[in-house]
Design a protein around this nucleic acid. Structure first.
Lengths: 138, 138
DNA sequence: CTTTGTGCAAAGAATTTGCATACAG
DNA sequence: CTGTATGCAAATTCTTTGCACAAAG
């Protein structure tokens, strides 16, 4: 049910430089858009014969912990991964072509709208905030 | 992977009024915020001994097709369900207890912040906007 | 009665984990 | 060498489906 967001880092993990990790990170970072785990596998397999899906998932988890990639969850519930930019950003999905874009605007700043790139027309949006509810905030 | 959002309605389905359907709809509609399928089960089971998780899922699908409830997919990928026809709103998840609340504020209005209920403390948020990208907007 | 709906258990799909082996440092 | 990382397959988790029985109309 509740998926752990930031699993406690087990000491002694993510210590070594392996070809698998390099390739998986590169596949994610050089893709045109965010990829699913299943989409990463064949791309990585072209460069490393026999790489397994478990390695893809384990590496994704590691890269997420290291904040080198971030997860993008589409409205269908599909999880994809993209390179982690340093700046706080959100996403925009075109309702016609389905492409997902990164937007450097944030509606939580007063000038949020000003930072919406030219040409993008917002039709709807979904916002989820996280924090402490009244009972837990005491 | 891609979950069908509105499967073709098979004729002859959703014809009958059953206690299970009434109770499941009521559980979803009278909750404080959107519920997961697993969260609906125990609430419905209090009123109908022996109700099964398969019935929860089948009824959720039916209610979605009838547009009596809608799915809320949180940025964690967790899928929840809430009554349909509520006013435009967003959600707030407590980072401690995990509960999800409906918030009638919207950051896309100038006075958005003023409508954040007392006692809720925002720590982070995630926003996805939908619309037409430059190429598709022509 | 006839047909749809339900509960149970098995099947699927996506992701995680255990374990023996491979390999980085 | 020592201990981490990988690949495989089994295990989990969440959701769907097949089937026989229950129940709505």
């Amino acid at each position: 049910m509740s998926r752990k967001r930031f699993p406690s880092k087990r000491p002694g993990l993510g210590q070594r430089n392996t070809r698998q990790r390099d390739v998986i990170l590169d596949v994610i970072c050089s893709a045109r858009g965010p990829l699913t785990a299943a989409g990463i596998l064949p791309r990585a397999a072209k460069r490393i014969r026999g790489i397994g899906i478990a390695t893809i998932y384990r590496t994704i988890k590691l890269l997420l912990e290291q904040e080198r990639i971030s997860a993008v969850i589409l409205p269908t519930g599909e999880t994809r991964y993209e390179a982690q930019g340093l700046e706080h950003h959100h996403h925009f999905q075109c309702t016609r072509c389905g492409q997902v874009f990164c937007m450097d605007f944030c509606p939580f700043t007063k000038s949020g709208f000003a930072r919406l790139p030219r040409g993008f027309r917002v039709e709807s949006h979904s916002v989820t905030t996280y924090g402490k509810c009244p009972e837990c905030g005491k």
